[in-house]
Every structure is written in structure tokens, then in C-alpha cells.
């Protein structure tokens, strides 16, 4: 059952007036609305949700890569040349960012998931988000996975190392701009992107 997100938001705003929390509604039939939380106030929000509202179970932590919108718009423009350029030039270029999503459940109230979203400032240097391992122990491996695959640095994590790729690996494979090693091999039925690579490697 989805939690009553408006009531939770009111509780949070009462208890933590300084925390910047924004409600993002999901118009889909699932109505899984989410709370966009400022990175700095994430530990306080999680502590309050855990201790006071009995969200005692963190089921999932995952990441999303939002590339620089300028690049995304350039691609969209190339697709549709009828669009005017003015719109893109008006808005100042905002950097892309990484987002981390937390799914919280309450065993006592049998509600969930309560979706929390936290964003980094950009995708380069400022990719720090406070760790919630001290509140939800189950976050430890999942935060390591996000560090490994997306490159989000969790401050305060007890053991932040790569978990899936080897330690010497330098890339973050789930980022949109990751370039995989060029080791294409024969594929009997290539299609789409694989077909393009096949054409590059096996000129007729």
C-alpha cells in the first residue's frame, strides 16, 4: 500500500523546518509519489522517518544518471530540425546530475514504498551524498554498488569500495556516456546498435 505522502510531508516539515523537501507527484496509475530531498538533509530525514514514522526497512537503493541537458537538447534538435533554436539558448546551461533513489517500507504500518530522491550537484566533481548506512545497515552494499556503477561518493560510508567491478577499474559503466571496450565479436543475428558495430568491424 502506498503511504500517505502528504501526511508524511507535513510531519517532516514540522519536525525539520530547515530541510528542503519537495513533493514530486507521479501521474501514473501506480501513484508512487516521491520526495525530492536535498542531499545535506538526507540523514536527518531518514533518521526521522526511521525513528518516528517507523519506516524501518530500506528495500532498495538505486541510481539514475541525468546527462547534461544541453547535450540531450542538441540531440533532440538534430532529430527535429523544424524546432527553433531560441528555446535552448534562453535558458542558462544547467549541468547534468546523478540521482539516488531510496525505497522505504514500514513493517508496523504495512505501507511502502516511500520513495526518496536525492540529487548531486553535477556529474563531475560534486557527486557527494551523505551515506545512510548508520540508519539503514542494508544500504551498505547497495551504496557500494551505486558508487561502482554510477560514481556517486557516499560520505560517511564505512567501506566505500567497488563491489562488482575490480578495484583497478576506473569507469562507471551505468553512466550514459560510458564507452565500453571496443571488443566486438562476430554475432550471428545483429540488430540495432549491435548491427552498427558489426558494420564497423566487418566491412563488406
Amino acid at each position: 500500500m502506498n503511504p500517505d505522502i502528504d501526511a508524511i510531508l507535513n510531519h517532516l516539515r514540522e519536525a525539520l523546518p530547515d530541510a528542503a523537501i519537495e513533493l514530486r507527484r507521479n501521474p501514473g496509475p501506480a501513484e508512487q509519489h516521491s520526495l525530492l530531498v536535498e542531499a545535506a538533509s538526507l540523514p536527518d530525514v531518514c533518521r526521522f522517518l526511521h525513528d518516528e514514522l517507523h519506516f524501518d526497512y530500506l528495500s532498495n537503493v538505486t541510481g539514475i544518471d541525468w546527462p547534461d541537458p544541453a547535450k540531450a537538447e542538441a540531440v533532440a534538435l538534430a532529430d527535429n530540425e523544424n524546432e527553433t533554436k531560441e528555446e535552448t539558448e534562453e535558458s542558462p546551461p544547467k549541468p547534468g546530475f546523478l540521482e539516488v533513489v531510496y525505497h522505504l517500507y514500514s513493517h508496523r504500518d504495512r505501507v511502502g514504498p516511500l520513495v526518496l530522491r536525492v540529487r548531486t550537484l553535477d556529474r563531475g566533481e560534486n557527486v557527494e551524498i551523505p551515506s545512510v548506512v548508520s540508519i539503514y545497515r542494508s544500504a551498505e552494499f547497495q551504496e557500494r554498488e551505486i558508487y561502482d556503477l554510477f560514481g556517486v561518493r557516499f560520505t560517511g560510508h564505512p567501506d566505500l569500495r567497488r563491489i562488482l567491478m575490480w578495484d583497478e577499474f576506473v569507469d562507471h559503466p551505468m553512466r550514459k556516456d560510458y564507452v565500453a571496450p571496443d571488443d566486438f565479436e562476430y554475432e550471428p543475428t545483429p540488430h540495432d546498435a549491435v548491427l552498427e558495430r558489426a558494420k564497423e568491424h566487418y566491412p563488406s
Binding site: 559503466p173 565500453a180 571488443d183 554475432e187 549491435v194 558495430r197
Partner: peptide, 14 residues
């Protein structure tokens, strides 16, 4: 033998 369904991935030996 070949990487199977993960052949075009970045993390599996072909």
C-alpha cells in the same frame, strides 16, 4: 563458449 546472451555487455568474457 561465447558470452551467450551477455556477449555485447562490458563485463562478460566472450
Amino acid at each position: 563458449i561465447s558470452g551467450g546472451p551477455f556477449k555485447q555487455g562490458y563485463n562478460v568474457l566472450k
